[in-house]
């Protein structure tokens, strides 16, 4: 509730600054203070951490932010203070946001990069300024610069989903493949993982592919059109859950309902419910909670001069009807 209030005030300020400067492209700032300001009284050292997420409008990223802030507050109270920046799905915006964090002299930066290549200058700038930088969830291509990457191997999410669908199909048939935005790192890796599995299944054919930009409505339209064309579809591989739910909506209520296997990735709450209801065969959990706690731990260690691993892997987990009711997925 408090966070909502603070973010409301800051959004009003954002709108104000927008009016003053004429138009958009500003970074939206949120400061999520961790409790009272009595840190000094307790004579503990406090640190400011800049968190730059490429987009806070993507559901998973919003969740990751919440988990990071929650975990930090619960575990370290007011020792860690966060400045949260939204990169608005734009490399340039994210880079200038990080420049701002550097000039604010934050103690450490956590970043979810928008682009594997274009965010490298920002990493370099942080390193030059002597500010340690952790990448979480997504990573840049230059792994020599950053202090550490906390994340899951996207390739394995593709592997898990395609494996599940391939088995459900009995090892043969037609699959329709729905892509996220072309060029995004996670899209490329998920695709890679899916392809690895398909090599083992020569009888599964990719009947059609479409770029649906993580968007539910676009996926729905594409699948409606494929269904209309009379194409034989046995399974739909979706690179995220939103598209999987769109694909399901396209066949819901038609003769094909229940005859097509659909899988997604991300384990958003809608998709988890759909798996429980048998609408989707599977989703894959990118463990935001674990990523959040690992990155906060790593940050804490770095701030106190301890070494951390260069790559801290947080494994993906396949969610099917069998395990969908586990408490772990339902918080």
């Amino acid at each position: 509730m408090k966070k909502k209030f603070i973010s409301a005030i800051l959004s009003v300020m954002m709108v104000g600054s927008l009016l003053l400067t004429g138009c958009g492209g500003e970074n939206s700032n949120e400061t999520a203070g961790a409790g009272s300001t009595s840190a000094a009284a307790e004579n503990k050292e406090t640190f400011t951490i800049g968190f730059s997420d490429f987009s806070l409008t993507a559901e998973y990223q919003a969740k990751l932010r919440d988990e990071i802030l929650d975990y930090a507050e619960k575990t370290y109270g007011d020792e860690l203070e966060f400045v949260v920046l939204d990169g608005e799905s734009d490399s340039d915006t994210q880079n200038s946001g990080i420049d701002n964090l550097i000039s604010q002299k934050v103690d450490l930066i956590i970043m979810v990069p928008f682009d594997a290549e274009q965010q490298i200058p920002a990493v370099q700038a942080a390193v030059d300024a002597g500010i340690p930088l952790l990448e979480v969830c997504l990573q840049t291509a230059d792994d020599g610069l950053r202090t550490s990457f906390v994340g899951s191997d996207d390739t394995s999410s593709g592997v898990l989903e395609m494996q599940c669908l391939a088995e459900a199909m009995g090892g043969k048939g037609n699959v329709v493949y729905l892509h996220g935005p072309t060029g995004q790192d996670s899209e490329i890796k998920r695709h890679e993982g899916a392809n690895q599995v398909l090599e083992d299944y020569p009888d599964i054919e990719v009947a059609a592919e479409s770029v649906c930009n993580w968007d539910r409505a676009e996926a729905m339209t594409a699948i409606e059109n494929y269904v209309q064309s009379g194409m034989q579809i046995d399974a739909i591989f979706c690179e995220n859950d939103e598209m999987a739910l769109g694909a399901y909506a396209a066949i819901e209520g038609t003769d094909l309902e229940g005859k097509i296997h659909i899988g997604g990735i991300d384990c958003i709450s809608d998709a988890l419910q759909a798996v429980k209801d048998g609408k989707l065969d599977c989703t894959v959990l990118q463990d935001a909670k674990l990523q959040a706690s690992e990155v906060v731990e790593a940050a804490y260690k770095v701030l106190h001069g301890e070494d951390v691993e260069e790559y801290i892997e947080v494994p993906y987990q396949l969610v099917t009807k069998d395990n969908a009711d586990d408490e772990y997925f339902n918080n």
């Binding site: 909502k4 973010s7 409301a8 959004s11 954002m14 709108v15 927008l18 009016l19 138009c23 958009g24 939206s28 806070l56 409008t57 993507a58 559901e59 990223q61 919003a62 969740k63 939103e242 809608d270």
Partner: peptide, 20 residues
């Protein structure tokens, strides 16, 4: 209307906290 584009989108995200 470009201003409204950003304002309405921002208000939407704020209202939903980025979730559908």
């Amino acid at each position: 209307t470009m201003g409204m584009m950003t304002i309405a989108r921002g208000a939407t995200l704020l209202f939903t906290n980025g979730r559908p």
